[in-house]
Design a protein around this nucleic acid. Sequence first.
DNA 1: CCCTACGTGTGGTCTGACCAACTGTCCACC
DNA 2: GGTGGACAGTTGGTCAGACCACACGTAGGG
Lengths: 248, 248
Amino acid sequence: MPIGPVARQSVADQVFDQLLRSILTGEEGPGTQLPPERELAVQAGVNRQAVREALQRLRQMGLVEIVHGGGITVNDWRTSAGLALLPMLVVAHETAVDPVVSRSIMELRAVIGADAARWCATRSPEGTAEVLNGIVGQMEGLGGDFSRWGMLGYSYWDAIVAGADNVAYLLAYNTLREVAGALALADRMAPSLLEREWRQTGLYRDLAKAIGAGDAEASGRIAGELLGAGVAAVNEWLASLPADRGGR
Amino acid sequence: MPIGPVARQSVADQVFDQLLRSILTGEEGPGTQLPPERELAVQAGVNRQAVREALQRLRQMGLVEIVHGGGITVNDWRTSAGLALLPMLVVAHETAVDPVVSRSIMELRAVIGADAARWCATRSPEGTAEVLNGIVGQMEGLGGDFSRWGMLGYSYWDAIVAGADNVAYLLAYNTLREVAGALALADRMAPSLLEREWRQTGLYRDLAKAIGAGDAEASGRIAGELLGAGVAAVNEWLASLPADRGGR
DNA sequence: CCCTACGTGTGGTCTGACCAACTGTCCACC
DNA sequence: GGTGGACAGTTGGTCAGACCACACGTAGGG
């Protein structure tokens, strides 16, 4: 039995996590002032530099505002944080993944993936369709080995997004891939939600063909169908839950 | 003539900018090792702590990999950076905005905005349509005062995205708003590109009505039309350029 | 009453030191 | 010959303490 890599978190990372958590949970609401750096340092029992690194990272994410000599103010992350916060929203309450967050992720994935496929059909360089077909071939090859499907799915959509010639899609998709990792770690349910999507190998091949033919309309439609399955699965999951799970 | 606020950049921010630029320009390509922290500090003529803060921020963005005792490796930002990089891509080459980046931004904005409108029609809380109608009223009120259109447009789409009940859209839209600021600053052309979109007040009112009626299909269609105008404008701009502008 | 000047608190920068992890080398041992 | 341990050098991580720069409240002078 192989052992995995040991998670080693630096002191600054731990401070970052603690502050992030207290902001996301609302313990430190928007507009409130954080304690001074020096006090945070003694509270955490660490050096001031570690606190500073954490605070600068929070600032970069838009979660706090720091003014020289004026203290640190907590922002409202709903209006000032960027997409980079998404992976951390998933991990923030580590007991279970917020279904609304999951749905958000799947919807964003679907809407970007579908449009990327549309553009990929007309803007992608030569050879993209061949790459996609190769991946589909591998998919068909490994019948039930579910553990490797995920990787192939990533490569498939990676190729499409790369072929869409849209940096914004590319970057957003990178964030989404990171989120997927956090999702899979935090919640065992997520993979099974995706399962029905993975199974549709036929559509994967159709999509590759449509992209190879340069048919934007068909590509967008098939990709939407493919990715819509994941959205539908999350929605069903959401509907099956008691009504009290709807926060954030 | 009123003078604006002076940009005061901390030392760590300047180091961050320099490193970011040298990574984005490819001067420090993927896989290359950065000089050690101590050397970077003497090169920049600053403290090592400042360098550390900058490096930690680069790490958070996924641009570099840092291993304890092992040095700092530059990542390929195309595969490892998140959407947070988008604003910095715009500013990176400050002479002119890369048209491909601009197009990417407008497309992402359009695709998210349209889907947000679709969901806003069915998922938004009571009163959203009233808010939207109020904003449209203000739009109609200030005939040619173009400077204030931008603000109103932001509020309008803010309300829609907030009503879509999708955190991912919300966060991505926050990033896009930030990008819009950078765009307007870096390139005077951007506002005129958006102008035709702003002018379509009638569609803005139609969209508010469709959302109020809970008509998802119409909302998505109108929003797509509205936002598609901006995409089309950028595409025309792109087509009018000499072919040598296509990098990145 | 204004408003200047100052003190206090807070973020920003610096110095220097030490700890901890990776890397390569060499050598004892099997 | 190969394996594993001991070692030194490089580099990131942490710490302590000091000083500078800015914001803000307040008391004193006009």
